[in-house]
Computed example of a mutant assay.
Amino acid sequence: MNLTVDGKSIEIDADPEMPLLWALRDIAGILGPKFGCGIAACGACTVLIDGSPVRSCVLPVGQVEGAVTTIEGISSPAGLHPVQQAWLDEQVSQCGYCQAGQIMTAVALLEEIADPTDEDIDNAMGGNLCRCGTYPKIRAAIHRAASLKLARS
């Protein structure tokens, strides 16, 4: 199978039923998406497919249609993505395990809603679990990222 991941074409030699997460991690060597639960309940494995957040732990690689973006693919030569910068500015991470999925979901939210309300953020991020409980910092970082994106526009 040929996939476009983070703007590059990669060949995946795998059973089409293999979850995308394992194809990314074990075959392509892309380690940002994490295994958390294996049942699409925690969000640690979230990647974007054509801009929409998808739980890669349950999506068979053979069913992937569209460009896959992982946390490794959101920054640019000019620097960090505004969400990544906001995460640093707000000191969101504690253990960090869930952060790739949190960030990818936040990126998708801000592409859909440029200046989200707290309710928008809670609705979009509700399926991403953080065992450290950094939810208030996550919300603050998303608001900061929205400001950074609007300032760059």
Rank of each mutant, 00 (worst) to 15 (best):
G66M: 12
I27W: 08
E119V: 12
A114I: 05
K8F: 12
L59H: 13
T46N: 04
V83P: 09
Q85S: 14
V83H: 14
G73Q: 06
T105W: 00
G62R: 13
I49T: 07
Q91I: 13
W87Y: 13
P33K: 08
G66A: 11
R55H: 15
V47L: 11
G73W: 05
P60A: 14
L48N: 03
C57D: 12
D122K: 12
I39C: 04
S76K: 07
L48V: 07
E11Q: 14
Q84D: 12
E112D: 11
A44K: 00
D13P: 04
G62A: 14
D15E: 00
A40P: 02
I74E: 09
A40D: 03
L129V: 09
L129K: 00
M104T: 05
Q91M: 15
G96Y: 01
M125V: 09
I74G: 05
E90K: 14
V5G: 05
R25G: 06
V107K: 10
D6I: 07
I39E: 05
D50G: 10
L88A: 15
N123W: 09
I74M: 08
C98L: 08
I12Q: 00
C98V: 06
T117K: 04
A41E: 09
S9M: 15
V107H: 07
R55N: 14
E11V: 14
D122W: 00
D50P: 08
G96N: 02
I30F: 11
N128T: 01
A100P: 06
D15C: 08
G43R: 06
A100G: 03
L48R: 01
A67P: 03
L31H: 09
Q102V: 10
D122N: 13
R55K: 10
T46E: 06
W22M: 03
A28D: 00
P116T: 03
V83D: 15
E112I: 03
V83R: 13
Y97I: 01
V54L: 00
V107E: 01
L109K: 09
A100W: 08
M125W: 02
V5C: 04
C95N: 06
V64Q: 06
T46S: 05
V58R: 10
I113L: 10
V58E: 15
D118F: 09
T117D: 10
W87E: 12
G32Q: 06
D50A: 10
A114K: 09
L110A: 03
K8W: 08
T4A: 08
P116C: 04
C42N: 10
V5E: 05
A100M: 05
A78Y: 14
N123T: 15
E119G: 11
A40E: 08
S56Y: 02
T70R: 10
E65T: 07
K34D: 01
G73N: 06
D26A: 02
